[in-house]
């Protein structure tokens, strides 16, 4: 039996717009990326995957489902009660900075920072740089543990 943790994320319009903005930063324009992957027969996996996604999002009705699966028990060392509480809090509330998150959770800055770093290493949260602030965000909407053969 293998223990598996599956994390699902709901992606709203703002999230999809952010995906497109990130692809623009990585590749310039959609046409430029298309040129790269077709004409240059690009062997860059990221470019091909981005092209497939970007094309789908440009099409009417196109969409994205995003999932993270942990096929290793190592992740359970990271998912302490405090960190799960942090994930849950970030799911329902917006914070302006790490300091703001620490204040709202009534925890000290260093422990909050360390816990965010641990969650970030497994891709469970992102920390967005906004001016002088680092803003933690989580799109985790469900976290399911199962056993599989």
């Amino acid at each position: 039996m293998i223990m598996r943790v599956e994390v699902a994320r709901d992606l709203g319009k703002a999230d999809l717009a952010r995906e497109v903005a990130e692809m623009e930063t990585r590749h310039g324009s959609f046409d430029g990326l298309r040129q790269r992957v077709f004409v240059e027969r690009c062997a860059d996996p990221r470019a091909v995957d981005d092209y497939v996604l970007w094309k789908a999002l440009r099409d009417e009705g196109g969409g994205l489902e995003d999932r993270t699966v942990f096929d290793t028990p190592e992740v359970f060392r990271t998912l302490t009660p405090r960190r799960v509480e942090m994930l849950e809090f970030l799911r329902h509330a917006e914070v302006a900075s790490i300091q703001d998150l620490a204040a709202k959770l009534r925890r000290d800055y260093k422990n909050t920072y360390d816990d965010l770093a641990a969650l970030k290493a497994w891709g469970l949260v992102a920390v967005l740089r906004e001016g002088k602030n680092q803003r933690p965000v989580s799109h985790v909407t469900s976290l399911r543990v199962s056993w599989e053969k």
Partner: peptide, 9 residues
Amino acid sequence: TRVVRQRIW
């Protein structure tokens, strides 16, 4: 087109 993206650790 629906894209399904997964990161499996």
